[in-house]
Amino acid sequence: MRGRPLSSVLFNIFNYSFLLLIGIITLYPFLNLMAISLNESLDTVKGGIRILPRVWTTSNYEIVFSNPQLLSAAVRSLLRTVIGTLLSVFMTTMLAYTLSRRDYKLRKILTLVMVMSMYVSGGLIPFYILIKDLHLTDTFLVYILPGLISAFNVLIVRSYFDQLPEGLSESARIDGASDFQILFRVLVPISMPVIATITLFISVGHWNSWFDNYLYNTSQNLSLLQFELMKILMQSISQVTGSASSTGHIDATLVNTTSPESIRATLTIIVTLPILLVYPFLQKYFVKGITLGAMKE
């Protein structure tokens, strides 16, 4: 046996350092913002904050959480995520179950209509006019209803149901179980990996949404946390570039008590943290889910 060739050792050194660098490039901006959010805002203006705060403080967080406008936006974001995700997962699972039932008479036509929906799109303006005609503007419902069913998620769940042994639901049916019972008592408990996958996708989608807020719900009493962050962001961009800001103004008291830079960093960390806390635990599920979905495609 020869020893490892030099080129292989060199490659290993290069490879590990390169991947480490990629990891650092990915993490650094988050750590930087975290440091800014925990640093005294007057001190931040002097610059030079990297991954550790210079003058520790939690006052930025206190200011954000004591601002009624931001606090209620946070509550609405949370409500949207919880309600939207529960309803969406519930409806998606039911639809996927019926489409996995080979004896269902409408299965063929419904599947066709659903899959085609991934390819057709009326475009932004017709969609906007539809929302207006349905009187969904300035309602909380506009956050939940339009995105309730995604064909892609239904297909992921359906292909999971498809590969479960058919005897399971068959024997439950012989015992006199209804379709609801078969789905929620028999199939759902053994399909947790795929349910977890779509729950993650759907909830992250809700938590991150801002465009529907911007387009349909311009009134302050329905705004979400991401949108509040966007308003501050847009104002900063227009300051950097010296052009006029087109989207509303932020609460003046916020800017007086701390700097826009600190508020932006703090809000960014607040909207990112929930995702960071949840997603690593679901990683093994969604990797399987997305691979399955992509293979099916």
Binding site: M91, Y104, S117, G122, F127, L130, F180
Partner: peptide
């Protein structure tokens, strides 16, 4: 005999059709 399956699928399908296909009508504009 399949009324349960119909109840489970039709509401979701109606929402999907409403928000995916109905906007196509706007192309007339």
């Amino acid at each position: 005999s399949q009324y349960q399956l119909i109840i489970m699928s039709i509401p979701a399908m109606l929402i999907l059709i409403l928000f995916s296909y109905v906007p196509l009508w706007g192309w007339i504009m």
